[in-house]
């Protein structure tokens, strides 16, 4: 976590704070996908408000996107920006894993 703290936390970097481009692959509204969407939405709103783009891809509607991104598991989150690319699969039961993947400080109130 210390690894990413500087970029996210330093006060004077607010303007230069990284913008996030996220793609979440889901399968309709099956439970794992629904859970992942809601957890991700909460984390983004509380940490990344105003500086993220989230694209939700339903693999059954756009399987080509799944092929292109090698998404075999659902749900899968791909953090495309900022680099390096990070991939998290699952319903984010352990939010810390997600928060860490986004390079954010772990907070108590998120779970």
């Amino acid at each position: 976590m210390t690894r990413t703290r500087n970029a996210a936390e330093e006060p004077n970097t607010e303007a230069r704070a990284p913008r996030y481009r996220l793609r979440l692959f889901v399968a309709g509204d099956e439970p794992n996908s629904a859970k992942a969407r809601s957890v991700l939405a909460r984390v983004c709103e509380s940490h990344l408000r105003g500086r993220y783009e989230l694209e939700v891809v339903d693999v059954f509607e756009d399987y080509q996107a799944a092929i292109d991104s090698h998404v075999l598991m659902v749900p899968t989150l791909i953090v495309e920006e900022p680099p390096p690319t990070r991939i998290v699969v699952g319903s984010f039961r352990d939010v810390d894993v997600l928060v860490d993947a986004l390079g954010l400080p772990v907070a108590e109130d998120l779970s």
């Binding site: 059954f60 090698h70 598991m73 659902v74 699969v89």
Partner: peptide
């Protein structure tokens, strides 16, 4: 030919399934 390799740095949290694979195979 589908590249089904899982990136080694893939993180896992919570439940997931092979529905991505099914969606691809089904579409193809």
């Amino acid at each position: 030919l589908l590249d089904g390799r899982i990136r080694p740095d893939t993180l896992a949290s919570g439940d997931f399934s092979v529905k991505g694979l099914l969606a691809i195979v089904s579409g193809k």
